[in-house]
């Protein structure tokens, strides 16, 4: 059931007969990082996941030494789950959508550096989900019983929200952000989710709680305006716009919020 779908689109790089991949390894969180080199046969249409699968099946380095199979995370392989994010040739991105034909060789694979490294290419991104909890990234429902449809909405507003709602919590924006380190900045991902819910007619009703979530010491004011996040986002989410809008909201809330109390 196979079919060759890709006619080689890259003209500048003539594909070599093999693919050379350098992987930054770590046996466990307490072990040192080391590099290992692997070489696998070239095939058209290879993505990084396919390369890793090939190495996993027969984990022998380029030098011919048998080693442990590299460990990574993967799930949807369609760039919607976000789990397979790693640093490829110096840039954080999803390994499923990273095609060998479009990458300079040797290809380097490293774990993301802003999160605890579990093993090899696996990192622990649970802090991102903790941040979602902190900013109350949800609509407060009265209950899940049938109350009819939600509020009517303009398609334009829906489209703006849809852009934020595509965030797959992959962490590329945080890896690229110079401020995101050592818990000193909540980061663009969570701020964009505040935007998503503060734009919703019902979500808006709990706007203040969300703003408070991004007004703590590690909050939105720590953004250094490097604007790396928006360039790094694989879903093209307008992260800097979200930061701008929420910054404005927090300033107004900071100035006049006390009047409500």
């Amino acid at each position: 059931m196979s079919a060759h779908l890709r006619t080689s689109s890259s003209t500048s790089r003539v594909p070599s007969k093999t693919v050379e991949i350098h992987i930054r390894r770590r046996a466990n969180p307490d072990a040192p990082q080391t590099w290992e080199r692997f070489e696998i046969p070239y095939r058209p249409n290879l993505n990084i996941i396919s390369c890793l699968m090939e190495i996993q099946q027969n984990p022998v380095t380029k030098e011919g030494t048998r080693t442990t199979p590299p460990v990574w995370q993967m799930n949807c392989l369609e760039q919607v789950c976000g789990i397979c994010t790693m640093v490829i040739n110096g840039r954080a991105r999803q390994s499923c959508s990273a095609l060998v034909d479009n990458l300079e060789q040797p290809i380097t694979l490293e774990p993301m550096s802003k999160f605890p490294n579990v093993r090899d290419l696996v990192v622990d991104r649970s802090q991102m989900f903790d941040h979602l909890r902190r900013v109350h990234a949800w609509v407060e429902l009265d209950g899940t019983h049938d109350l009819g449809p939600g509020p009517r909405m303009d398609q334009e507003d829906v489209q703006e929200r849809y852009a934020y709602s595509r965030c797959m919590t992959c962490g590329c924006c945080l890896e690229a952000c110079p401020q995101y380190e050592d818990d000193n900045y909540i980061g663009p991902q969570a701020i964009a989710q505040v935007r998503l819910f503060n734009m919703h007619p019902t979500g808006k009703m709990n706007r203040d709680e969300r703003l408070e979530g991004i007004m703590e010491d590690d909050g939105i004011t720590n953004c250094g305006n490097a604007q790396n996040c928006v360039k790094a986002c694989p879903m093209n989410i307008p992260l800097t716009k979200a930061i701008y809008e929420e910054n404005r909201e927090t300033v107004i809330y900071g100035l006049f919020g006390w009047l409500k109390r």
Binding site: W138, V139, G148, P149, G150, R152, Q159, H200
Partner: peptide, 14 residues
């Protein structure tokens, strides 16, 4: 409708 209330950005009519 429940998902609509939860804020899912469903596409809209005019």
């Amino acid at each position: 409708y429940l998902f609509d209330r939860m804020g899912v950005p469903f596409s809209r009519t005019a």
